[in-house]
Design a protein around this nucleic acid. Sequence first.
DNA 1: TTCCGTGCAAATGATTTGCAGGACT
DNA 2: AGTCCTGCAAATCATTTGCACGGAA
Lengths: 161, 161
Amino acid sequence: MGAEADEFQRYLRTKGLKLTSQREGILERVLTVRKHFSAEELFDSLRDDPRGISKATVYRTLALLVEAGLLEEHDFERGHKVYERAANRTHHDHLICVACHRIVEFHDEQVERRQEQVAREHGFEVVSHTHQIFGRCPRCRQTGAAPAQPPRSGRLRAQRG
Amino acid sequence: MGAEADEFQRYLRTKGLKLTSQREGILERVLTVRKHFSAEELFDSLRDDPRGISKATVYRTLALLVEAGLLEEHDFERGHKVYERAANRTHHDHLICVACHRIVEFHDEQVERRQEQVAREHGFEVVSHTHQIFGRCPRCRQTGAAPAQPPRSGRLRAQRG
DNA sequence: TTCCGTGCAAATGATTTGCAGGACT
DNA sequence: AGTCCTGCAAATCATTTGCACGGAA
């Protein structure tokens, strides 16, 4: 099942690569994730996988999935990439809570249009863009939660259990 | 001279810190730079400085300058921060050429407004934002320059000589 | 003398890569 | 046989930090 799985296999084929069990395992997992995730988190979630997938392979496969167009890669916090499924999803940007790190997606036609316009005015041909709005989410505004310490190397809160 | 120098000194004072010769040297240099620069580039440009400023001090001082509001910090390429003067400058975002890395600034009221609006709709209180449009600049579109290989660890093209 | 600052070198931490053995064709 | 892969451990690389000495209040 999965047009995406086929898509990946097709991509690999064009590159003379194979869909190994590890890559399959990673793909499956990736397709079940709803939100944004980091390579580390993905690796953690695969700990119990019988195929025993190494961290190196996770990184290598994530790169392939991005190349194949199945995943989108974001760089919200320095030195910490985050991924999300690209398929079946319309383009969107992100609102990120500086206190709890919650990520909310948004899409605004007006912004998109102006963006194109601006690029055109400068003679640029748009290839892609990143638009992130950092702020305090409603929840954190109420609780007055502190801006969280994402100062150093922002490590995602380990989701254990 | 320099309202900015005063500004920095004022900031340091509030923190119980001092304006040492090294910090002064870094500040001076920073104030003469027109474009965006990395910590490494700044450090290089200070090699000839008689005060002998270490890389660690450059990093530490850059952080202070950002805190003081004199510099803005961007994270265009992963793991490679870039700075620019904040003073006397209105807010703006960036158009970045994927081929030659040229950076063009832009400001669009409409985008800014919509941005605020979007955040509000989601109950967010905006703290800051990043908006980068990646594309091909007019020059590179003509020459058909290749998208440059910023794949791995984006190291700025070493400007030697 | 008490902080604050600095340089140096070592530490970080996410991500990448070299290498040797395995698997699939 | 010949690729393509994988895991492991070591390497990267920008940035941070521990430490011990130096300087100004």
